[in-house]
Amino acid sequence: MLTDIVQLVLNGIMAGAILAAPAIGFTAIYAVLRFPNFAVASHATIGAFAGYCANVWLGLPLLPSAVVAFLVAGIVGVTSDSLVLRPLRSAGLITTTIASVALTIALENLVRLGFGNALRNYDLPIMRDWRFGGIRVGPQQLEDLAISAAAVAALFTFLAFTRLGKAMRAVADNPTLAAIKGIDADRIARIVNFIAMGLAGLGGMLLGLDTSIDPLTGFRAILAIFAAAVVGGLGSIPGAVVGALTVGVAEELSQLVLPSDYRTVVGFIAILLVLSFRPRGILGARAY
């Protein structure tokens, strides 16, 4: 029983670590632009396919492919935001949110138009898991964990120590004050979109590494991503990490008491509990 729990917690941490990247993207956009951008789903898919092209078509190894996934999703994020969402932001939260859903459907179908619906797999050797006592760990999982952790660490460094990072936090904390201090909100919005959608793209690729990718890769994960962001505290970047790990571990541990097909319920219950008892999420709404 104890081994089971350890194994489930471990599986949950691995799954949560992969969720963390897109969850940070989701929450960062919320922190700065103040709307839930569900287009994170299609950008995760786009990142997954960009990484696939780099890995399978160009023959690049894992790390450079992950960089490609980040860059392509980031660039698409900036472009789609300035073309579609930015002109609508003045119309209010609901309009922009609905537009983001429409955007994600449109982008998902563009991917479908180019790549079709078939499942695709990265060109990586599949390895048997390592076993330590009763616990098993996949080499690929550890690699995913390391990449995700490195991306998150890089983001925290950026936010804490660079001028731009501080400017982003300033806009998130108090946009009016930031504007008075001469921070260009549009520029910050573009940078946030680039980083956030880049992280979503990276997350999409990490999701696909362990499984397969298709145009619905991002869409399947969006509930868990949303749950992670809400549980951690919508708008809080460290919160997104905590939220992702919480949701990941909770989904796995739920199998001890719930049948496996009730997994989706866990995300909903997490959102429900947090909104009922601690609406600001575990870490509250401070961006950083």
Binding site: Q7, L8, N11, M14, A15, I18, G138, L207, D210, T211, R220, A221, E252, Q255, P259, S260, D261, Y262, R263, T264
Partner: peptide, 12 residues
């Protein structure tokens, strides 16, 4: 065992 269709991993 009946599983959920949208899971990204079925390790457990």
């Amino acid at each position: 065992l009946i599983y959920d269709k949208d899971k990204t991993s079925y390790r457990s």
